[in-house]
Design a protein around this nucleic acid. Structure first.
Lengths: 204, 204, 204, 204
DNA sequence: CATGAATGAGCGTTCATTCAT
DNA sequence: GATGAATGAACGCTCATTCAT
C-alpha cells in the first residue's frame, strides 16, 4: 500500500511481519494449532489487522509458501543462465534446495509438514508447486538423456522423483534432527549417488 | 491378522473398527477436519465409546500408524529370513513399502499427510518410526559395503535416506495423482537407479 | 428426541426452553442484538446445546415464528368449523389475532419488530406467513361479496390488507405502550369500523 | 430542498450524501448487514468522515428517519392550510403518505423494516414519530365527530389506528412485492372503505 | 461396557470506532 | 476538515471430551 518503504521501525511493513510471524508460529505448532491470534501476537499487530492484508488465514500460509517457491524458481532460472551442463544444473538445484532450507529453517519445516497436509486448500496449491519443481528436474534429465550423458532405459519422471525424493528426505532428516549440513557438499553427494550409483563396478 | 487381543478381550472388534474408521475418515478429510463423531459414526459406535478404547483423538491416529509400522517391520523381518543378499533385501524393502501402500491406500495417504503434522507431532512420534525404517536400510547398506558390493566412499546414512526418499516420493506422487503401479517393477527401478546410477559409463 | 416427556424439572424439554428463551431475549433486545450466548443463558443451557436442537441462530427464530403461525392457523381452521357466517369469521380472526398477542406478548413484540426486518432470511419466511394470513381474510371477504353482504366495488385484496393493517396497528400500539385490551371488544370495534364505516348516514 | 445548512456550512453536501447513501445501502441490505464502511463507500467519503457528521451508526439512521418525518409533517401542515374539510384532510394525509413512499422507495423500505427494530430502538425513537402521525389523524377524526360527520360511538384513537394501519399495510404490501400504485386513487379507496364501510346497506 | 446429550473453551472473522497523519 | 489503517471486543459456531444413565 505504501510504495516507498521508509524503515519506520514500528509501523514498517506489517505485511512482511505477518508473513514472517505466520511461518514462525506455524513451523512451531502446525497450521491447525496456530490460531490467527497467535500469529497476530507474534507479528505485534491486532488480530483484525491480519485481515487488512490477507483474505483469511489460508491466504497467509498460501502467500508465504508461494513467495518462497517463487524466489526459489527465480534463483534456479538465474543460475541456469550460467550453469548449462546437465550435471551442473542438477547439482545446482540440489544445492539451492538444501541451501534455502538452511537459510530459512522455519520455512523448511513448514514445507516438510504443512505442505503435505491433506486439507483441501493446502493440498491443491502445494501440489502445483511440487509438480513445477519436478518438471524442471525432469527436463534437465531428459536433456541429459538426449545428449547421451544419462541412460535412456529409465523414465525421466522416475529419475526426477528419485532425485527430488532423495534431496527432500535428506533435508527432512536434517530439519527434524536439527543437524547442520554443508549444502554444496551434500548436494554433490546426492548427485553422485544418483548419477553413479552405489554399486561397485559390475554389481548392476 | 486376528491375534487374540490383549486388554480388550471381548471387544477387539470395536477396537479394530474404530482404527479402521479413523484411517478411512482421516484419509478422506484430514485429521483436523475429522471430528471424533465422524470416526465414531463410521465405526458404528457412539462418540463416547472411542474414549473407552483410546485416550483421546490423537491416540487413535497414533495407534493406527504404530500398528501399520509394526506390521511392516514384522513383514520385513520375516522376509529377511529367506532373502539374505543385500541387493535382494533392498529390493524386498522397496517392494513391501510400495506394496503395503497399494494394499491399504488410505493408510498410505495418512502416512504421506497426517504423519507429517506439526513439528511437535512428527518430532515426537512419527520420526521414531522413520528412523527405525532408515536404520534397517542403513544396516543393509553397511553390510553391502563390508561385503564390497557397495561403494565405501559414500555414507551409509546418506544412501539410506536417498533410498527411502526416492521410494517415498514415487509413492507420494502415485498417491496424490491416484496412479496405479506395479510394486515389484517399481521397486526394481528404484533399486536399479540407486545401485547403478543414471549416468552412462564414464559420465561420473 | 425423547418421545415421552417425563416432566423432569431440570432436563425437561430443552427444545421448548430454548425457543421460549429466544422469544424472550429477542423481544427484549432484537434479533441482531441477541447473541446466541444470551439465549442459551436465558434457557439455562450451554451455548453449544442450542446447536443440538437447531441448525443455527436463524433456525431458532424461524422455528419460533413458524410454530406461532402454525398454531394460529390451526385455531382459525378449528374455529371456522363452527363459525361460518362471514361477519362472524372476520370477528373471530381479529379476536384470535389480538388474543394470541395478549397471551404471548413477547411473541407479539417479535412479530411487530423482527418480522419486518429486511434481513434476507427473515424477510423470506415472514412474507410467506403474512401472505397466507391475508389470503384467508381475502377469501372470507370474497365470499361475503358473493353472498351480497359486502360491497363488490372494492377489491377483496384491498379490504383484506385494510383489515389486517387495522388490527395489526391497534395491536402494535397496545404492545408498545404496554396497554391492556379486551381482545373480543377490540375485535368487534375494528370489524364494526371496517364493515359499517365511520361516516354518519349520507356522508359517503 | 437545499436549505442553508446550519452547523455544517461548508459540507452540507457530504452530510446529505452520507444520509442518502445510508438510506440506499440500508434499504438494500438491512441495518445490521450494512457496515459503516459500505455507507461511506456509497457516499464517496472515508469511513472516519461519517463520525465527523454523526455521533455513530445509529445516529445516521435516526437522522435520516427524523428528517423524512419532519418533511412529511411540514407537507401535511402546509396542505392543511388549503384543505380544511375532514374528509379531504384524511384523503390528503393518506395520499401524501403513499406518495412520499412512492417518491422515495428506499426510505419507504426503511420505514417498513429498519424502523421497527428491537423493542428498545422502536420504543424510544420510532414510536415518537408514529405517535405524532396518529395524533394528527386523531384530531381530524375528532373534529369530524364534533361536526357530526363521523360516528361518535367509536373512539377517535381506534379509528386513527385503523386508518394508519390500513394505509401502512397497503403500502407495506406494495413495497414488498414491488408493485406500483396510484397514490391518489389508493388513498381514495382506503378512505372510502373506512368512511363508508364495506357492508351493503343493512348489513351492520 | 456403551451410550449420546451436554458442555464450554476456543476458533476464524467482522466491523464500529478511534486517531495519527 | 478528511483520511483510512489499526484496533480489539464480540460474534456464530464447532467439537474434543465427560458423565449420568
Amino acid at each position: 500500500m505504501k510504495p516507498i518503504e521508509m524503515g519506520h521501525p514500528a509501523s514498517a511493513d506489517k505485511y512482511q511481519r505477518i508473513l514472517d510471524a505466520a511461518v514462525e508460529v506455524i513451523a512451531e505448532r502446525g497450521y491447525f494449532n496456530s490460531p490467527v491470534s497467535a500469529i497476530a501476537a507474534r507479528a505485534g499487530v491486532a488480530d483484525g489487522t491480519i485481515y487488512l492484508y490477507f483474505k483469511n488465514k489460508d491466504d497467509v500460509l498460501r502467500t508465504a509458501i508461494d513467495r518462497t517457491f517463487g524466489q526459489f524458481h527465480e534463483q534456479v532460472e538465474e543460475r541456469f543462465k550460467t550453469v548449462t551442463d546437465v550435471r551442473g544444473q542438477l547439482e545446482e538445484i540440489a544445492r539451492m534446495h538444501l541451501e534455502s532450507a538452511a537459510v530459512n529453517r522455519n520455512m523448511a519445516i513448514l514445507m516438510q509438514t504443512e505442505m503435505r497436509q491433506s486439507a483441501k486448500f493446502i493440498a491443491e496449491f502445494s501440489h502445483k508447486h511440487l509438480v513445477r519443481y519436478i518438471q524442471v528436474v525432469r527436463e534437465v534429465v531428459r536433456r541429459g538423456q538426449q545428449e547421451g550423458i544419462f541412460r535412456r532405459d529409465v523414465s525421466d519422471g522416475v529419475v526426477a522423483h528419485c532425485l527430488f525424493g532423495a534431496i527432500d528426505e535428506l533435508l527432512s532428516s536434517a530439519v527434524f534432527t536439527g543437524r547442520e549440513y554443508d549444502a554444496k557438499a551434500t548436494a554433490a553427494q546426492v548427485i553422485d549417488v544418483v548419477l553413479n550409483g552405489i554399486g561397485t563396478v559390475g554389481s548392476g
